[in-house]
Design a protein around this nucleic acid. Structure first.
Length: 359
DNA sequence: AAGCCGGGGTC
DNA sequence: GACCCAGGCTT
């Protein structure tokens, strides 16, 4: 019977676990949800960390704790305040799901401690259920995120092609479960993710510093960057035309419906479609800004035009006037917040130049 | 199973 | 510009 990379790992499982845990205790970053852990802080951090890097999350986590320190305060908050705290983090359904989760937790007689119970709650999938229950309750549940996939694919030099990260995570879950340290599953899971984030980089991994290098098939053959094998996404270009409409010191914004697929209950600059404006009729002289940005597999070009208020403009229920003084208190997506700030700064500069013409 | 979420950082 | 990030939800 041939020796597979996987069976080699399992043979040395105990050494691998102790080496990993020893490395983790020496090298883990002092993150706020580790220094002062609780079930609530673990849940909040895991929601924020879905598809978002630690560095990005840190300031949001601290602000969130100051505003919503526990499940009760979050459950009793209004959704507008919750979305406002999430402004700029992206993937806003996470904030709405976390809010709904807090309400569900407060309504329960006891805090659930089993992964299958957490899995029933909104926004909690296989990864998050394993993370919460292993870290906060010591349950034997293996976390399989992008970091763990990368490490396991390299340890085994497994050349299987995966359509996306979710398929790869599913594929590596059995191995992750077999390797999980039974004595400290929470630290083991965090150690794997920490190793992926700080050592087993996608490119130029620091194999000389890796506590698992001696068992890594990809390191042995100098092919770490060949794993995992994930299918690249096809980038699709799209363009959106938006309107800048002002009346009596207020800006016209669109507010997405609570059931919208994206940006539910958030404000944004209205699109030409929202206003039933024919894009062909726009004048290039009214173009205030053109910005590109990406989200998942889309590259979106957004063009913002100054539109004068006229009888022809149709304003549906989803359109609201927000006075410039109130712009700070509503929830916008990160890009929309930036564009509005930039355009206002531009206009203020134009105004100064008219009053004090440059020489 | 595949798309979508329309964010942000990194190299 | 391409790829990734402590993924989950919808269809």
């Amino acid at each position: 019977m041939p020796t597979t990379p996987e069976s080699h790992l399992l043979k040395h499982r105990a050494e691998l676990q102790s080496g990993l845990l020893r490395w983790y205790r020496r090298n883990r970053r002092p993150l706020p949800w580790r220094l002062d852990p609780s079930v609530y802080r673990t849940v909040v951090s895991e929601f924020m960390l879905q598809q978002t890097q630690v560095k990005t999350v840190l300031p949001y986590f601290e602000r969130w704790q100051a505003k919503f320190p526990d499940f009760e305060s979050l459950a009793s908050a209004c959704e507008d305040d919750v979305l406002k705290q999430w402004e700029g983090l992206g993937y806003y359904s996470r904030a709405r799901n976390l809010h709904r989760l807090a309400k569900a937790i407060v309504a329960k007689p006891v805090l659930p401690d089993a992964a299958k119970d957490w899995r029933e709650l909104p926004g909690v999938g296989p990864y998050t259920a394993a993370a919460i229950t292993s870290i906060a309750f010591g349950k034997l549940e293996a976390c399989v995120d992008g970091n763990v996939v990368r490490i396991l694919a390299r340890l085994t030099a497994d050349a299987t092609h995966h359509g996306d990260g979710a398929a790869a995570a599913k594929y590596f879950t059995p191995l992750a479960s077999l390797l999980l340290s039974p004595s400290s599953p929470g630290d083991h899971n965090q150690a794997m993710m920490e190793l992926g984030a700080t050592v087993c980089h996608r490119r130029d991994p620091l194999c000389r510093c890796c506590p698992l290098a001696q068992w890594c098939a990809a390191t042995k053959s100098g092919s770490t960057e060949d794993f995992p094998k994930l299918q690249p996404k096809e980038i699709e270009h799209r363009s959106v035309t938006r309107a800048w409409v002002v009346k009596d010191g207020a800006l016209l914004l669109h507010r997405s419906s609570p059931r919208a697929r994206r940006l539910a209950n958030l404000h944004e600059l209205p699109t030409a479609t929202h206003l039933e404006i024919d894009e062909q009729s726009l004048d290039a002289r009214d173009l205030l800004a053109r910005r590109k940005r990406g989200i998942t597999r889309y590259l979106i070009t957004e063009s913002i035009y100054r539109i004068s208020l006229s009888e022809q403009l149709r304003l549906g229920d989803s359109l609201v006037w927000i006075s410039f003084g109130d712009l700070q208190s509503i929830a916008l997506s990160g890009p929309h917040r930036r564009w509005i700030t930039e355009i206002l700064a531009m206009q203020a500069a134009d105004k100064r130049n008219k009053i004090l013409p440059s020489k």
